[in-house]
Simulated scan of single mutants.
Amino acid sequence: MKTIMPKNVLDHKDAVILDVREVEEVQAGRIEGSTHIPLGLLEFRLHELDKLKPHIVVCRSGARSGRATAYLTEQGFDATNMVGGMNEWQGTTV
């Protein structure tokens, strides 16, 4: 599985940042410009994602995003897990 450190995420301007946390978690703050699809709904909303773009997957600690990254990779996406999740994010949130 491909991984990326939080400090390097914004260097990938062409990537979709996919936040797979629950609604309550996202309301506390998310990376600006990120797409929110809770992990439990990912398989049902997969059609909303562009397979031609790379995806960086984010959750609170990195565990759920790891599962989502593995699933997306199995489905033919270029997906990368953000190590440490939002717990390690030092950038601004909206």
Score class of each variant (00 low, 15 high):
66 G>P: 01
79 A>H: 02
70 A>T: 04
53 K>Q: 14
52 L>C: 06
81 N>C: 06
66 G>V: 12
60 R>M: 02
85 G>R: 14
66 G>Y: 00
44 F>W: 00
57 V>P: 06
48 E>T: 14
62 G>S: 12
74 E>Q: 12
77 F>H: 09
52 L>Y: 04
62 G>L: 12
44 F>Y: 00
56 I>D: 07
63 A>W: 04
64 R>V: 10
80 T>E: 06
46 L>F: 01
47 H>S: 03
67 R>T: 04
70 A>H: 04
72 L>R: 03
55 H>N: 05
61 S>V: 10
81 N>G: 08
58 V>W: 02
44 F>A: 00
61 S>K: 08
77 F>Y: 12
81 N>D: 08
76 G>T: 13
82 M>Y: 13
67 R>L: 13
73 T>K: 10
79 A>M: 07
44 F>I: 00
55 H>T: 15
52 L>A: 15
83 V>M: 11
75 Q>E: 15
60 R>G: 03
71 Y>V: 15
62 G>Q: 14
84 G>P: 02
59 C>F: 02
69 T>H: 09
84 G>L: 10
75 Q>W: 03
57 V>C: 08
53 K>E: 13
83 V>I: 13
68 A>T: 05
85 G>T: 12
72 L>Q: 09
51 K>G: 03
47 H>L: 01
77 F>M: 15
52 L>G: 13
44 F>G: 00
82 M>S: 12
83 V>E: 12
84 G>A: 12
50 D>Q: 03
82 M>F: 10
44 F>E: 00
63 A>K: 12
66 G>R: 00
82 M>N: 12
69 T>F: 04
85 G>S: 12
67 R>E: 08
64 R>Q: 08
47 H>M: 02
81 N>I: 04
67 R>I: 05
54 P>Y: 09
52 L>P: 01
53 K>V: 11
45 R>N: 15
62 G>I: 05
48 E>P: 00
80 T>Q: 05
68 A>F: 12
73 T>M: 02
65 S>G: 11
55 H>Q: 11
69 T>V: 08
73 T>A: 02
53 K>M: 14
80 T>D: 06
52 L>R: 07
52 L>T: 15
75 Q>D: 11
62 G>F: 05
70 A>W: 04
77 F>I: 11
